[in-house]
Amino acid sequence: MTAGIRPGAPRPPVPDGPVAIVGAGTMGAGLAQIAASAGRRVVLHSRTGTRLDQARTGIEDSLRRLARRAAADGTKAPDPAVVLGRIHTTTRLEDCAGAAVVIESIAEDRTAKQELFARLDRLCADAAFLASNTSGIPIGDIAAATARPERVVGTHFFSPVPVMRLCEIVRGPRTGDDTVAAARTFAAEIGKESVLVERDTPGFITTRLLTVLILEAVRMVEEGTCTAADLDRACRLGFGHPMGPLASVDLSGLDVFQDVAAALHRATANPVFRAPALLAELVAAGHHGRKTGRGFHDYTATTGAP
């Protein structure tokens, strides 16, 4: 049965209550920001207080940038103090109990996600849905760790979360229609547009397509066809991409992308997902992109990538 919300049809409401975000990295912090900006109370969880402090600082900086930009444009932005006041940070997973919506955004580790969802299933029995922000791990595998797989769904957001409008809603083999509808409603509530991935296929829609593009871009640079700077410039000017594929993978992390490509290759046995040697060489050298100062581009200068 295909679930979805027809254009113009009324959307079923998502129950009032806090949104629990588990994982306070770049994606988790961004999710906390947009949920709080939309008026929701947020519980942001991480295992370490240091990560939570970094997340709160990052959220505050992002909100202040948006406020300055809005003031310059004559538009309105959320009050940073009000938004931050809606976000409660915690190292206790038990504080997520009672959440109306739960979104997991931890590292792409299947076992870790399964263990987490087993705990969240017990703690958050009244949540409208339990969602994973995974970019490629099958939702069915994650849902199998719970007693309510029909309430588990994929909500794949894009970085930077406050800016990117897309959210892939991923249906697992046992995800219920009401869960899909609730996830789409929530995505709209926090200002995102969603597409529905009906088949729980590795890489979903965008990760699968983007991985092929990035790997081919790496091959072209490896072969000496062009420089990374010119390849990214060609994609921006010729295709209208806001960011070239190599700058994009620098932002997400070459080490993360290497794992994604390897997982897709294992799952599909499709040679298009076989990574070039150049990718492995950069990762082994510690050049993981923006977070290390160098990837396909050099970020040690203030100007960043071309």
Rank of each mutant, 00 (worst) to 15 (best):
R266P: 05
G30S: 02
A20C: 12
L246A: 11
F239N: 09
L278Q: 11
S194C: 07
R92Q: 12
C96F: 07
V153E: 02
R199T: 13
S46H: 10
H288C: 11
E168P: 04
L31W: 01
I34D: 02
A38G: 03
M164L: 12
Y299V: 08
F186M: 03
R148L: 06
G244L: 13
A131T: 03
R151Y: 03
S159Y: 13
I142A: 03
R151W: 05
E189H: 00
D200G: 05
I106A: 03
A70F: 12
G224R: 08
A262D: 12
H241D: 06
T26A: 14
P173G: 03
L166P: 01
A269P: 05
I190A: 00
G304K: 12
E168Q: 04
Q54M: 07
A112Q: 06
P242C: 13
P80E: 07
E60S: 15
R92G: 05
V163W: 03
R92W: 09
P10T: 11
A35K: 01
P15W: 10
I139F: 06
R40P: 01
P10V: 15
E198M: 07
T155A: 08
A188M: 06
A269M: 12
T57A: 15
T90E: 03
G30V: 01
A118G: 07
V260P: 00
R64D: 05
V43G: 00
I21E: 00
R51E: 13
T185Y: 06
A24V: 02
G8P: 08
A118E: 05
A55S: 11
I142V: 11
D79E: 14
R148C: 01
A38P: 03
V153M: 02
T201R: 15
A107L: 15
P18L: 02
A217V: 09
G289D: 07
G253M: 10
D16F: 07
R274H: 05
A144V: 06
G58K: 04
A269H: 15
D178S: 15
P80Q: 09
R236P: 09
D73W: 08
L231A: 11
G140Y: 09
P13E: 11
L31H: 02
A100I: 09
N270R: 13
A128K: 06
T300I: 08
C96G: 11
R233I: 10
A247K: 06
G140E: 06
Q258P: 04
L215W: 04
F158W: 12
E108S: 04
V161S: 00
D178V: 11
T227I: 14
P15Q: 09
L264R: 01
L231G: 07
G58V: 02
P10R: 11
C167R: 02
L210D: 05
R110K: 14
A125S: 14
I169R: 02
P12S: 13
A38T: 04
A262E: 13
V283D: 10
R40W: 00
D250L: 10
G28S: 03
I169F: 01
A247H: 09
R165A: 15
L251V: 07
M220R: 15
A125Q: 14
T89P: 00
E60G: 10
A36H: 08
A118C: 04
V101T: 07
A262P: 06
